[in-house]
Design a protein around this nucleic acid. Structure first.
Lengths: 249, 249
DNA sequence: CGACACATTGAACAGCATCAACCCAGGTGG
DNA sequence: CCACCTGGGTTGATGCTGTTCAATGTGTCG
């Protein structure tokens, strides 16, 4: 092994949530795991199963989604590089959703047995993972508000604001714009719209000067205006050091 | 103190998630706290604040909700007796939603400082609370699917199925029906419908034989049919012993 | 070059929203 | 004890937002 260890992204992420002790960091980085490259569309978790490995997204994107009886798909979350895909299954054994790679992606697979043994023995780590899980729940709440109480254009702009901030936070985009990792179909499944209506709304947003598009690249000509029209308040992302730490407790 | 201690509901709930050690139970029950009776509509948590106390619902009901800029309210969760209202704030300090009592309710208020000090020192307890938080997240996901991908009648029946199961699990209802703790307005804010459309949909459901109503009491003439039409699969509630325990890890 | 996935456009339609009125039961005060 | 008020529930008429179905355009990759 040379260069930065593959699990470093995860360690950094957890560390930003609840400053880890040196031991915690060391023991995380010595976790057994293997890298896996998957092609777009690969299922990493299937509803109803009990995952054996915790996948951490190293490169690429993934979505969590649920299906309704009549075949409708609702994307309930977008995962970006560095995100552990399976915090839920650290605490619950049965998957009640699917996780699918959006495009070609590489993941680190950590056997849950090992991860649990380690984490349960170290309160600092359970705590960090629990924070991680709570932030995901917080994002879910905002998505519910987005789908439930905003119109098509607001929903899309709100989603773009979120993606843009999350990608900037992890150094995967700059203020100049970001590359949208999803098709219009997938945008529709994230915002509870049809692909057709997503298309029309995007065109309208572009004509209205809310967004600019260049292939899959999205940028905001006037970021403040976009934030305002979508009612975007990044607080729900809980980024930065505003969380509860062991020492504060 | 005599009779069952007020925090017993919480202890039982956590215990059902991750079998607690005797110490864990004892230390929970000796937590300092005070009872508080509140009238309907009282805010127990306000967005943007940092709650000082963890409220546990002893009697009555509460909702979590978020507001959009244009004044739309989205209820993101319904809390029933025994639910801790604030698991999120065990791990995140800033509230990004509101919590409001639905009708007259009584809560136990536990100072967060005490609760955190206790919980952080006991991995078994962090674990139990983390499971509790993950189950809430799991319910949120299902609500997102509900609002995003089901029609008005399905949304309502799905919500009724959920409430009915949760109330039965905690002994607050029987198979004969349950008392709906919310108005049609609140049903609308939970399902992203207007009160008017909730009303029409309820009438249609009644005429169609899907539900029966008697004042605020709801029952299912044909439970299996209702479950099927709403696409209700109780797995997302993670009730019963299907969770990850320390010993399994 | 052809195949395929994705994006774009049009026309007709449906589900739910909106606004406005009315009803009913329970509670309050004169 | 009744008159009134208020919060919730019910109903009607109308229209907008987003859906549906179907066709056409466009870029990429074997």
């Amino acid at each position: 092994m040379h260069g930065t260890p593959p699990l470093q992204v995860l360690i950094d992420k957890l560390d930003s949530y609840a400053a880890l002790a040196d031991d915690d960091r060391r023991s995380l980085s010595s976790l057994s795991h293997f890298r896996k490259a998957v092609s777009g569309g690969t299922y990493l978790v299937r509803e109803g199963t009990t995952p054996e490995h915790c996948a951490v997204l190293l490169e690429g994107y993934a979505i969590r989604h649920k299906l309704s009886l009549d075949g409708g798909r609702q994307i309930v979350s977008l995962q970006i590089p560095g995100d552990p895909l399976d915090v839920q299954h650290l605490f619950l054994d049965r998957a009640d959703h699917n996780i699918q790679a959006l495009g070609p992606a590489t993941v680190a697979m950590i056997p849950f047995a090992d991860l649990r043994a380690l984490v349960m023995a170290r309160p600092g780590l359970i705590h960090a993972f629990a924070i991680c899980g709570q932030i995901e729940a917080s994002i879910l709440q905002e998505w519910l508000l987005n789908v439930g109480r905003r119109n098509a254009q607001q929903r899309l702009v709100h989603l773009f604001c979120e993606i843009s901030v999350r990608l900037e936070n992890t150094g995967h985009a700059t203020r100049d714009g970001f590359i949208l990792p999803m098709t219009q179909e997938e945008l529709g499944d994230s915002t509870s719209l049809t692909a057709v209506h997503v298309n029309r709304s995007l065109m309208a947003l572009e004509r209205g000067g809310w967004i600019e598009r260049n292939g899959r690249t999205i940028s905001f000509p006037n970021r403040a205006a976009a934030i305002k029209m979508a009612g975007f308040n990044p607080q729900y992302l809980h980024h930065g050091r505003q969380r509860v730490t062991l020492t504060e407790a």
